[in-house]
Structures are given as structure tokens and as C-alpha cells.
Simulated scan of single mutants.
Amino acid sequence: MNATAIGLPLEGITVVDLTRVLAGPMCTQTLGDLGARVIKVEQPEVGDDSRAIGPFVDGTSAYFMSVNRNKESIALHLKADADRQIFESLLAKADVLVENYRPGTMEKLGYGWDELHARFPKLIFVSISGFGQTGPYREKPAYDMVVQAMSGMMSVTGSADSGPCRVGVSIGDLGAGLYAVIGTQSALLRRARTGQGERVDVSMLDCQMALLENPVARLSATGSVPGPIGSRHPSMAPFDVYAAQDGWFVIAVGSDVLFKKLCGLLELPDLAADPRFTTNAERCKHQAELKVLLEECLVLQPRAHWLRIFSDHGVPTGEYHSVAEAVAHPQIAARGMMASVQAPGGAELRVASNPLMAGLGADSVVRRNPPALDGDRERILRDFVDAA
């Protein structure tokens, strides 16, 4: 995709962003990356809650900066008549409204789906909440940790010795934000056919359940409750993290043919003929013994030795990286997956780019730095209120 030559896919789409913290801002940042004009409506004086979450760069939250590029900011008090008029002027020209308040909040403000659809029939109304707009838990508050725990995500993360373990990133928020992007784009496509906006109801808990593809299917197929198994795969072996002489790396063998090739490269022909390991099903039953035998060989050479041999012969493998090593990797650089944003004071922060824009370079992704609170008021009023 050549963004300069053909334009970004969501150019011409205007999004009013009533979101804060992570799930909603991830959704609207992605829409902004893809070309939408995103107007972030924030609470006067304090703004998005994440503006107060550290660490800070030149007085600005790195958390906030990581999910709020390509947006403009205006501060509005939605219970004040003058600010409500401005907000409604935004909605009159917007294509999408995204909010992540607790269900019922928008109705109390007078901006529920029924009211807004009657006034702005083409407006797409995207709601992201912990449990969705229906069901017995709809009004309960939720954070990422809550839905990770309730969905069973934590129960299959970590090891048998670790106890309940949260996924290392806020997958509850991020999953909901990305599903909300899909829902928004689907609603835009449908509106192109029908001329009507629609309600998109995204539940963080629903999204966690959708991401539990293998555990849910395994429970249904076997009747046994999946539990934490560390880094290995429940249905394939060897498929795990292994120790070489100087550090960890991964081997991911998904077939009997690949296993025989692996044994040949390790010069372990007896392993391939061992009845415990001749089929994937048997290897899964005896994965602990297999790991011990493999590592007895792997620790004799440094990681780079095995990575080179396995890669040259088509055995899926990869380095184990810290975050610092990952962001410095040449493949990440080649794909343009690191970008820079600036705080209002000028300090720079390196952040993850957008994988949908991979190959275009960081300059194509960051068109606007994360906004200062109310920093775009004059422009927004000129475009949406004065021009009305």
C-alpha cells in the first residue's frame, strides 16, 4: 500500500472519541492511523485518566502517548449547556462516536443510542465496556485484570507452580480495542449500502472468550479443564522454549516430518526412532522427557549455532528476546514497527507502530503527535462550530 499515492483507507471519516485509558484509545488510535480524523473529547482540567499514569516523559504520560497519536483534543463538560452544544455540533458532522463509559452513562447524559440515532441517523455508535450493553453484569465496572480472570485467560497462563498469572500485556483492553476497530469498519461498510448508522457493542469479556480458541475447543473435545502449561503447546511437541549454551530460544515443530529433520540436525537418530516420540501424539504425552533429552544436546552449543542450522534447514525457530532486544531487532526496523512521538514539551518517546502500516515507515504512521489537553480547541471550533 502506498499511502502517499492513494491516501489512507479511512481518510474523510471523522471519529468523535469519548474514550479513556486503553481499550477505547487503542481503537481510536488505530482508526486515526488508518486516516480517520479523530477528535478526542476530554474532561476539562484533568483529561483522559491515563494522562496521570506513569512513567512520564517531560511531564507527559508515556502511557497516554503510546495510544493517542493522530488525534486532536478538545475539553468539554458534557453536563454544561454551552459545551453540549459544541459536542452536538461535532456529532452532526461525525461518522463515528466511540465511547467506553460504563453502560447507562451515555443515557444519563442524554446521548444514548436511541436519542442519537433519531437525531443523527448516519452516525455509528461504538460502545466498549467490560461486559457489554446486556446481561446481568452489564453495569459492573471492569479493568483488564477482571476480564482476564473471569474469562479463564489467567487460568491457562503461567505454569503449574506460578498460580494465577496475568498475561504480560493488557490483552483484555487490547483485544477489545482491536475488535472495536473491526466492528467500526464493518459498520462503515454496511452504512455505505444502507445509509444508516448502527450500534456496535463490544464487551471486553466477550473478546477474551473469543481469544481462548484452543482452550475452549479442548475443553469441549476432551472434557478436561485446560490449565497452565508454561511456554509449551498443548497439542504439539517439541514446541517450547529451550536452553542452549548461552541462552534461551524456541523450537516449534508441528509435524512428524519436521521432528525427524530436527533429530537429524541434532545427530540424534535414536530419538526419532524412540516409540515415545515417533508420532506427535506420543511426543505430547512424553514432552517432559523429550525436553530433557533435547536440552542435553542443545546446551553443548551456543544459541546462534542452533538458530543458523535450524533456519537453514526449515525448522521453525527464533531467538528469545527481552523487550529491549526486540525493539532493536533489524526485522522490526525493516518493517517500520517502531515510531517516535513527541510530548507537547518536545521530548521524544519511541512507541510501537501499527502493523497494518508495516513497510511504509514510521513517518507514514505518525501524522500528529499525542495532543495536549484541549490543545486543538480553536481548530475544532472553526471546523465544526463556526463553519456550521
Rank of each mutant, 00 (worst) to 15 (best):
V96I: 03
C27G: 02
G175W: 01
P55K: 00
N70C: 02
H329W: 06
G24S: 01
S224K: 14
R190H: 13
N70S: 04
H233E: 09
A23H: 01
G314A: 04
N354M: 08
M26V: 14
A3I: 15
G112H: 06
I309W: 10
E378T: 15
L271R: 05
A334T: 00
T60S: 13
V67G: 02
A281T: 15
L189C: 02
L262D: 07
R368P: 00
G112R: 04
L293W: 11
K122S: 15
F249T: 06
P355I: 09
L189S: 06
R199E: 08
R199S: 07
T194A: 01
L123E: 05
V146N: 07
V216M: 09
E139A: 15
E319D: 15
D114G: 03
S220W: 15
S231D: 14
I251Q: 02
H329I: 06
N280M: 04
V169T: 13
R199T: 07
I380A: 01
A221V: 03
A244I: 08
P141S: 00
P44Q: 10
I124W: 04
Y63L: 11
G12V: 00
R276K: 13
R20Q: 13
G361K: 14
G172A: 10
A273Q: 15
K260E: 10
G177D: 07
M204Q: 06
A252K: 09
G35M: 09
G247C: 11
G12H: 09
P55E: 04
A372H: 02
G359L: 01
P121W: 07
W306P: 05
E45F: 13
R368G: 01
D17E: 03
T279R: 11
T105Y: 00
A388I: 12
G168L: 08
G24K: 09
L262I: 04
P238A: 01
E45Q: 09
Y101H: 09
P316I: 12
Q29K: 13
G195H: 11
V315D: 11
I6Y: 13
A352Q: 12
A23Q: 02
P371Q: 10
H329E: 06
T14V: 14
D383K: 02
N354S: 12
L90G: 00
G175R: 09
T278D: 12
M1R: 05
N369D: 14
G177Q: 02
R199C: 09
G152A: 00
R382A: 12
E115T: 13
A62M: 08
A142M: 10
G318C: 09
L188H: 04
V67S: 00
L8M: 13
P9D: 03
I13A: 00
L174C: 05
A94E: 05
A149Y: 06
G247L: 04
D83W: 06
K93S: 05
A36G: 07
Q245L: 10
E295G: 02
P275I: 05
D363I: 05
M65I: 05
E267V: 03
L211Y: 10
G247V: 03
S353Q: 08
S73I: 03
L290G: 01
N70Q: 08
R190A: 13
V253D: 08
V341F: 12
D256E: 14
F239L: 04
A3T: 15
G54E: 08
A180T: 00
F87L: 01
H77S: 15
